[in-house]
Design a protein around this nucleic acid. Structure first.
Lengths: 146, 146
DNA sequence: GAGCAGATGATAATGATTTTCAATACTGCA
DNA sequence: TGCAGTATTGAAAATCATTATCATCTGCTC
């Protein structure tokens, strides 16, 4: 149940930048647009891509991701586990809560926090260009203990 | 004007964990305790260490940093530039504002933001273990434009 | 349908960090 | 203080994620 529209949107962005729409790019973009796979890293994407077209290569995945990132079509996140993870650029900004046990990524947004950040930066004489807020935590076990 | 006390504190933590106090570790710990060098990466530390004892190796720097990190004696930060940067674990938690033009790192702390984070995590059913908040910005130019 | 710039795949290179392993040096104990 | 035994070291090679090289291929324009 892949929304072909999202995929098309990414392709449009690519085309608008003068890039050619190739078969590998179609596949990669389709994967990125899938709602299911949350925040895949390059290898995740590569593995899925190979299933659709066995001759896609890892470098092509990286190259395509880079182009898409430069176009602002997707966002790259560098969580503290070494590799980068990607997601289609959502219209609205959000931050991340990372489940330390499962690696799940939950998105959230707090206008209050955003405002406080602006305030702090202003006090320090700065203007925020972008920021990164990640919470690393564990599910609260109701009453359960170990 | 290196405070030998800070350095000693780190050595104590090392010793407490059953680690041996070796010459390379002494040097590395001393460097970390220096007030001057703000947020050095492993290579920065290595370069400085070599000046004090030319036979220290890079792997030893990494190994020592890892031990110190496990002991909670220092904190590792993975800013979005690939390599990790370290700093002695301050008694108090703080976040970072990174000057995008100069690379300077400014520390700040906001109890309000911390509380909001806790609140958000709680609502999502999580307990925060640690977090990362980085603001990337530029100095506000008062009236000046380019 | 031809031609060419841009894209691809295979492979090698890079940069940061980690591992391997034989040699060395802390530490506790005699 | 000397010494054994183990943690630690340095040198070199291995990993891991990512990027560059380069000859080949293929969208795309005419």
């Amino acid at each position: 149940m892949t929304t072909s529209t999202d995929s098309d949107h990414l392709l449009d962005l690519l085309k608008a930048s003068g890039a050619r729409i190739t078969k590998p790019r179609r596949v990669i973009v389709r994967i990125l647009a899938e709602k299911g796979g949350q925040h895949p890293d390059a290898m995740d994407i590569f593995r899925r891509a190979v299933r659709e077209d066995s001759r896609i290569s890892l470098p092509t995945v990286y190259r395509t991701l880079k182009v898409l990132e430069e176009q602002g079509a997707i966002q790259r996140h560098a969580f503290s586990d070494g590799r980068s993870r990607y997601e289609p650029a959502a219209g609205e900004h959000h931050d991340h809560l990372i489940d330390m046990d499962t690696g799940d990524v939950i998105e959230f947004h707090s206008e209050k926090i955003e405002q406080l950040q602006e305030e702090i930066a202003r006090e320090l004489g700065y203007e925020i260009v972008h920021h990164r807020l990640e919470l690393y935590g564990r599910k609260r076990k109701a009453g359960k203990r170990r």
